[in-house]
């Protein structure tokens, strides 16, 4: 018995090493100087240039990209993540409310039209989506960055499921008390959905922050680059240089993963529950 438990821990620890090792290496290496890294390879011990590297990455223009600072990219990532999450929660709550709490003529067909969006991921329709954005003059705008990503119904289904689990008696009681659709939504549905809203918001924030393909297509002006979008720029510069700025590349990677990782860690319980019950 003791032996099996011991091996269980060995396996789990190797798993932890596999998952955490690269992060640790990236973090530690980012605190060394580029030439140092080039000479000695990656490092698992902290170097003395932590603040220096991150200050350069965050505030200096140039480096990997022409004239955008890490801070600006971080801001863009935040705008994308928050805008996407807020939009998703708002849109899907309203739509799910209509689908669950109203009797109307085109309910079934509407439901199917929304459902279909789950079948085709953005990746299979990138080119035509890009053309549409061009036609609408939405490239290199925040609207173009955020809104098309909202065209998938994951959140709607999540809320729909949840609304259906709310007891019917609440609506009956509310109607006896004379509450209309708006009042019922604001005074009953919204307060009841608070945890659900928070869980979806968190998942969607991480999802939005981590978007790569769409921002790559939508933003050609550096002013709109997000951190994740900037990763490719890092590599393109990197290929041509003699001693690449490994430290800065690692620092940007750390910055790009920090907020989502923190959120997943802090809200772990919500995150896991939201994920296993909704699938994205």
């Amino acid at each position: 018995m003791y032996r099996t438990k011991f091996f269980d821990h060995v396996i789990l620890l190797s798993g932890v090493f596999l998952m955490v090792g690269p992060l640790l290496v990236a973090l530690m290496t980012s605190s060394h100087e580029a030439a140092d890294i080039h000479r000695n390879g990656l490092s698992i011990l902290p170097g003395g240039h932590f603040i220096e590297t991150y200050e350069t990455v965050l505030t200096k223009e140039g480096g990997f990209t022409g004239k955008i600072t890490g801070l600006r990219m971080m801001m863009n990532s935040l705008i994308l993540g928050l805008g996407f999450a807020a939009g998703k929660v708002l849109l899907s709550m309203l739509a799910a409310y209509a689908l669950v709490y109203f009797r109307f003529r085109f309910a079934t067909i509407t439901f199917w039209m929304i459902f279909t969006t789950l079948l085709l991921p953005l990746e299979v329709r990138i080119l035509p989506s890009y053309e549409v954005m061009n036609t609408l003059h939405l490239t290199n705008t925040y609207t173009g960055l955020i809104v098309p990503l909202l065209a998938s119904a994951t959140g709607t289904f999540y809320f729909r499921q949840f609304f259906k689990s709310i007891p019917d008696e609440l609506l009956e009681a509310a109607r006896i008390d004379g509450a209309g659709p708006f009042k019922f939504f604001i005074d009953v549905i919204v307060p009841l959905s608070k945890t659900m809203m928070a869980a979806i918001f968190i998942i969607m924030f991480v999802y939005g922050w981590n978007q790569y393909l769409w921002p790559t297509l939508m933003t050609t002006e550096e002013g709109f680059f997000t951190l994740v979008r900037g990763i490719k720029q890092i590599l393109l510069v990197w290929v041509g240089s003699n001693i690449p700025d490994y430290n800065q590349a690692f620092a940007l990677a750390i910055l790009a993963m920090l907020p989502p990782v923190m959120i997943v860690m802090i809200f772990q319980r919500w995150f896991i529950k939201g994920l296993t019950e909704s699938d994205k």
Partner: peptide
């Protein structure tokens, strides 16, 4: 074990490149 979930694929790719 779960934190890597939060990493964007291209960031994971960058780490891999390193």
């Amino acid at each position: 074990l779960i934190w890597v979930y939060a990493i964007a694929p291209p960031v994971a790719g960058l780490m891999g490149m390193m």
